[in-house]
Design a protein around this nucleic acid. Structure first.
Length: 492
RNA sequence: CGGGGCAUAGCGCAGUCCGGUAGCGCACCUGGUUUGGGACCAGGGGGUCGUAGGUUCGAAUCCUGCUGCCCCGACCA
């Protein structure tokens, strides 16, 4: 029982898989590359959704829903975007099955039910959305148009990993239209800030904001912004992207508006998204060898109370007191669960809730009732203390806040201690090969150099950090001049 | 798309080399003792061994085809 989870020092990848499975977050399905998100995993997603949705609405966005299918002719309208996704599109070609005469009880695709035009299962929704927006936008008075959708998308990946990369995944995609490039750029940056704020404040994952290189840019975008997070194995994980699409989609779908002077102009666009991949980020940023560690803000259950008793009479006595505590915690908006199941013993429950990452556990027995105390265990630091029941709701509320901050600080100091600066090629190669983490280095700005570095070291440019200061130097590979360091790492 | 692995009870596995009618741990059900870190004892239920065919008196086991999933690489959020 003690060995449910492979230690991360032994095999990081197995450790990750074990956490996902043992914490009951997701499992592989009968469909290749697709996962079943189980209740505990989905509850975490719902917490993320609720907070993001609130943040989107606070910044003026509204939700809508667009179709799963995109007619091929629409999909290919914006050429760069279409080309970028072409290799991983699922395509619907028929709309009917029929009995297979040759194999009793089996079905076959009805060759007479071939679609006149194939339907692409959306890998992203720009095409169908811009085709719709053109009917919604006539005048500058219709702008900005600020819409988000919560949806599933399909990208036919060769190699998949639960949450990190699956053929189908859940996400949100914001699609906005603006009257000027300036305004669209501001929106792009604003949503990047929303994501960074969400990642740091809510998920307790420190991120680096930056711009993608031309090579890593979203197909069809003029500029792609991103937030990059460091996982506990030192690898980078892109946690969110925000794109300035220029007028590319407006031109492809002929979306124009009359400006104040009555002249027709193409609108300026943005799109931005985060996905269930964030659940993978959450796991890899904070968890330990005992299971999931959840920052209190994302935890579906923040406090679990486990009664310790000898017989049902004692349980009843304890329950009366616990109900008061539950009431007091709920009154403070704390998500609390009282686990009075009689078919599992306390030790079993302790282990189970640690696996699931519940931030605080209270154990209460008769001994505690006599002393007016409870045993309080915090998941992140695995510490236990006896605390007075009197005022425990206040204590817990404060502790949840402290834990949120502590988890963030821990991730931050891990990241800071795994960031290096390479001054020459030997140093760079050595760091990438032998030190898990991020490496800042000068780059000459060309895709050729970027690809050569990737070829040689497997490291890619995660981003050109926004907060980096200009600092003239020479490219770590070619020695050509560079104005600023960029961020290299091996990535998920 | 290449290379490897796996498919036997809800889960994890043994049995396959050497054919004889299926077993272990966990979970589940019943009863009892237990309960402050994954309890114990006794009894019990559950499997057309991925699928189709072949060899054989007899196939989880040998042969052939098929399917699915996982892992490692190339490609990607």
């Amino acid at each position: 029982m003690a060995d449910k989870i492979t230690p991360k020092e032994e095999d990081y990848s197995e450790w990750y898989n074990d956490i996902v499975k043992q914490a009951g977050m997701a499992e592989h399905s009968a469909v290749k590359g697709c996962m079943v998100i189980k209740p505990h995993g989905y509850a975490i997603w719902e917490k993320m959704q609720a907070e993001l949705d609130r943040m989107f609405k606070e910044t003026g966005h509204v939700n809508a829903y667009f179709p799963l299918f995109v007619p091929k002719s629409l999909f290919e309208a914006e050429e760069k975007n279409a080309e970028g996704f072409a290799k991983e599109c699922a395509v619907v070609t028929h709309y009917r099955l029929k009995a297979d005469e040759a194999h009793k009880g089996k079905l076959m695709v009805d060759p007479d039910a071939k679609l006149e035009e194939e339907l692409v299962v959306r890998p992203t929704s720009e095409a169908i959305i811009w085709n719709t927006y053109k009917n919604w936008i006539q005048s500058y008075r219709d702008l900005p148009l600020l819409i988000n959708q919560w949806a599933n998308v399909v990208r036919w990946e060769m190699r998949t990993r639960l949450f990190l990369r699956t053929a189908e995944f859940l996400w949100q995609e914001g699609h906005t239209a603006h009257a000027s490039a300036q305004e669209a750029l501001e929106e792009t940056r604003k949503m990047l800030d929303v994501y960074a704020d969400f990642a740091e404040r809510f998920l307790a994952i420190p991120v680096i904001k930056g711009v993608k290189t031309a090579h890593e840019r979203f197909a069809g975008a003029e500029e792609t912004y991103c937030i990059e997070a460091m996982m506990q194995d030192g690898k980078a994980l892109q946690a969110g992207t925000s794109h300035f699409l220029g007028q590319n989609f407006a031109k492809a779908f002929n979306v124009t508006f009359a400006n104040k002077e009555g002249k027709q102009e193409h609108v300026w666009a943005t799109s931005w998204g985060v996905s269930t991949r964030l659940i993978g980020a959450l796991i890899m940023a904070h968890s330990d060898n005992k299971g999931l560690v959840l920052p209190p803000k994302v935890a579906p259950i923040q406090v679990v109370i486990v009664p310790v008793y000898r017989d049902l009479g004692q349980l009843e006595t304890i329950t009366i007191r616990v109900k008061e505590i539950v009431g007091a915690l709920k009154a403070r908006g704390i998500a609390v669960k009282y686990d009075d199941r009689d078919n599992q013993r306390p030790g079993w429950k302790f282990a189970e809730y640690e696996l699931q990452g519940v931030p605080i556990r209270l154990a209460i027995g008769l001994r505690d009732l006599e002393n007016g105390t409870a045993e309080l265990a915090r998941r992140d630091e695995q510490t236990k203390e006896n605390v007075p029941i009197e005022g425990i709701d206040i204590r817990i509320e404060r502790l949840l806040g402290e834990m949120q901050e502590a988890i963030y600080q821990k991730a931050l100091s891990f990241r800071e201690s795994h960031i290096y600066h390479a001054h020459n090629w030997n140093e760079f190669e050595d760091m990438i090969a032998n030190r898990p983490g991020f490496v800042y280095a000068h780059w000459d700005g060309t895709t050729a150099t970027e690809l050569e570095i990737k070829e040689k070291t497997k490291a890619t440019i995660r981003c050109i950090p926004l907060d980096g200061a200009d600092e003239p130097g020479t490219c770590v590979l070619t020695g050509k001049p560079s104005t600023r360091k960029v961020l290299f790492a091996k990535a998920y």
